[in-house]
Design a protein around this nucleic acid. Structure first.
Length: 274
DNA sequence: AACGAATCCTGTGCGC
DNA sequence: TGCGCACAGGATTCGT
């Protein structure tokens, strides 16, 4: 499901609901393991913790409780939803793995059918195994053409694979990689090392542009993505190539092509992208 | 060491 | 309607 815009949308939803200073009053963990083991003392450590803020790093949500941080990754199908007090007992769904309640009555559920998501606790987030190999955020000025042209210099893998590798730059997944490459006019199957300086400049701009517009739209809902409120996102209506195989290119009317790169469906315009 | 493939898991949609 | 198969927004782990 979720790339940076979807995770950021969820973060903003959570931020609106969880008050700073709210105390965790209920931790109801329904499974020992999602993709990886949840810490054995999860409940004990989280209960009575005082909420500070929720931030995002790459595609990870970080619930800051001061002495401890709840780390959550949505994998492909993970979601957080808020449950109204009146539905407290009634709204329990298949694949709900965790419920957290706060002193002000807010109840949250983490649901993940495919179980590719992560729920973990970290004492010191700067040492987190999940975060330490990540590249820069796409909006960080460090993500600049000169540096990335040089980083990619010796890479024989495709530019699409390079952009989706979170060690290079974070937040770009399968949908937005195709979209950004289209906006920049670069074919996804081009070798990363052969992308020119000018193309890197366009690519970085396109990535920032598409991610920003997708955040504004509340993310892309193809099937699973939901905001914390339960609403779908809106960016699926603005996709230019993803999931549009055979449809007319918005620029040149050529049929959009689909291929597989790195095992993932990839969409591009054979005329607009060089 | 770098790259691509296989893998974890459940649900959905399609062809027959 | 039912069955089998391919495929799905991620990213670690494995094999070459």
């Amino acid at each position: 499901m979720p790339e940076l815009p979807e995770v950021e949308t969820v973060r903003r939803g959570l931020e609106k609901l969880i008050r700073e200073g709210a105390i965790v009053s209920v931790v109801d963990l329904r499974t020992k393991k999602i993709r990886f083991d949840v810490p054995r003392d999860f409940k004990k450590k989280l209960l009575n913790a005082v909420f500070r803020k929720v931030t995002r790093r790459a595609k990870y949500l970080l619930f800051d409780f001061g002495e401890i941080t709840l780390v959550s990754h949505l994998g492909m199908t993970g979601s957080w939803r808020s449950i109204a007090t009146v539905d407290r007992e009634a709204d329990q769904r298949k694949h709900d793995h965790l419920y957290i309640e706060f002193s002000n009555g807010l109840r949250l559920a983490f649901n993940d059918p495919r179980r590719f998501g992560i729920i973990d606790l970290e004492k010191d987030i700067s040492k987190s195994r999940w975060l330490k190999h990540l590249g820069p955020e796409p909006f960080d000025p460090v993500f600049a053409a000169e540096l990335f042209k040089s980083k990619a210099r010796a890479k024989t893998s495709t530019i699409k694979t390079f952009l989706m590798d979170q060690k290079n730059v974070v937040g770009v997944g399968n949908i937005y990689a195709s979209e950004a490459l289209f906006l920049a006019g670069v074919r996804p199957q081009r070798r990363a090392g052969k992308v020119t300086m000018h193309e890197w400049e366009r690519l970085i701009g396109s990535i920032r542009n598409v991610l920003n517009r997708a955040i504004e739209a509340g993310g892309t809902t193809l099937q699973d993505h939901r905001q914390v409120s339960g609403e779908t996102g809106g960016f699926q209506n603005r996709l230019k190539v993803y999931d549009r195989k055979g449809e007319a290119c918005v620029n040149c009317k050529s049929p959009i092509k689909q291929t597989v790169i790195g095992g993932r469906a990839t969409y591009w315009c054979p005329k607009c992208q060089k």
